[in-house]
Design a protein around this nucleic acid. Structure first.
Lengths: 242, 242
DNA sequence: CTGATTTGTGAAAGATTTGTGTCAAACTGC
DNA sequence: GCAGTTTGACACAAATCTTTCACAAATCAG
């Protein structure tokens, strides 16, 4: 198991390193937020677990969590913190963390929680259809008629490339496409595509959707649907025609 | 979401019942271990979540956990307990629990943890590289012939999608369908679908029911019944297999 | 059967949400 | 800095949904 521990307190990480070694886990350590996000993004899909200290120098811990979630919607995250307030805990869990452990914690407890979460997360990997490990698949989103590659930042609809996507447009499309058919509210999209604490007009999302749709139309049928009163969703099930 | 709370302290379960209702979860309660296992086994694959108080009369909590795990290797289990010792916690997690919350806990916290775990467990269902069309799982209502998914805001009757549901229509259908055969008065529906303190004409419900029925008819047989003098109910028992 | 009550229905007014164009600000590469 | 892009905000028009109301139809009580 490949694990990333984000923790600025060296004595904590050194102690945990011993325990991780005992478990024979491939543990990596980051000591501040920016370093952590950078390290994580080198191989966003290669991590099995992240533990994140919220009290970090530099980047805010919640922001680090958001950045990691953005890069990988599924990696298990355990937040570690001295902040014991209930609202912090609830916020953390709502932000997408899977567990929230308050300091001081014992290594044994943390190990047990990591194992429990890893076991649970593994169910998602083993259950579904296998994905050839070595296969190209640098495509991060791939449905029948739609492919999206975050490394090259290219998107294809029914084989035709969607051209001239700006960064925001690409991120927006990626976010929607990662969960086909799931409806995202404007607020959710602002959190996921912009920032978790972005303060701005929700209608800005509409403006980007409009631009995005224009570019999608040049490549094929519309794959972004409006869900009236709720938000938007990606749905390429209408791209049947061959 | 269908949840089983195993808890012998009635004041705790009553308080939680209120919070579960607010979330519109289908919460069931068991007050001792044997009853819990029995209840669980009536439909081992029908549960989305179990919370288990370890301090139960009758059967030992750990044994209950083991019995449930045996019946369903994947159902998420959260252990609740006053025992704060580390060894208990580690043992619980090793026994197959996904989370371990010590009493006293606040309802908000428990709700947040249930949501986090449910989100994680759902990934196992939805994960499959985003398979075709309606393979999106995580239906919030699922009977033999009717399925409703709040994430995609889609509803299916005997496999056919009920199309073009407006927000109110969808919410209304969801509310009725969450408790099949249960009659809801117009007043109740106004509270549940509109707002707790909505001030408006009760007949507005009728208007929406009418529109909803029209859209349901396009997909299959009628599943909303009028209970004269009382209100409306969802009942799909008349829908025959195809 | 008759009258009272409740529900179904269609239309129209009212309210809300979304699409879209414009413009200024922020950002990029040079 | 500068020119070209991208982004964000806003306002108005267009589209869609919600609510109300009145009358017709159905149901019930006696």
């Amino acid at each position: 198991m490949k694990l990333l521990m984000i923790e600025d307190n060296k004595s904590v990480s050194e102690m945990m390193a011993m325990f991780f070694k005992k478990e024979q886990w491939d543990a990596h350590f980051a000591y501040d937020g920016n370093e952590a996000v950078e390290m994580f993004n080198e191989d966003p899909n290669g991590w099995d677990m992240v533990t994140l200290d919220l009290n970090l120098p530099g980047k805010d811990g919640m922001q680090v969590s958001a950045d990691i979630r953005k890069a990988s919607p599924t990696v298990p995250i355990i937040m570690l913190t001295a902040r014991d307030s209930e609202s912090d805990q609830v916020l953390g869990l709502e932000m997408g963390a899977d567990d929230y452990v308050t300091k001081p914690f014992s290594p044994i407890t943390l190990i047990a929680r990591i194992k429990a979460l890893h076991r649970r997360a593994d169910l998602a990997k083993t259950a579904p259809a296998e994905q050839p490990a070595n296969a190209v698949s640098s495509f991060d989103v791939q449905t029948d008629h739609f492919k999206l590659n975050t490394k090259t930042r290219e998107a294809y609809l029914a084989g035709v490339q969607i051209q001239d996507l700006t960064p925001k447009e690409f991120d927006l499309l990626k976010t929607l496409a990662q969960k086909p058919r799931q409806v995202f509210s404007r607020e959710q999209l602002l959190q996921l595509v912009w920032d978790y604490e972005y303060y701005g007009d929700e209608r800005t999302v509409d403006a980007h959707i409009k631009k995005l749709r224009q570019k999608i139309e040049k490549a094929g049928p519309q794959i972004i649907q409006t869900v009236w009163g709720v938000g938007y969703k990606f749905d390429d099930s209408g791209v049947d025609a061959q």
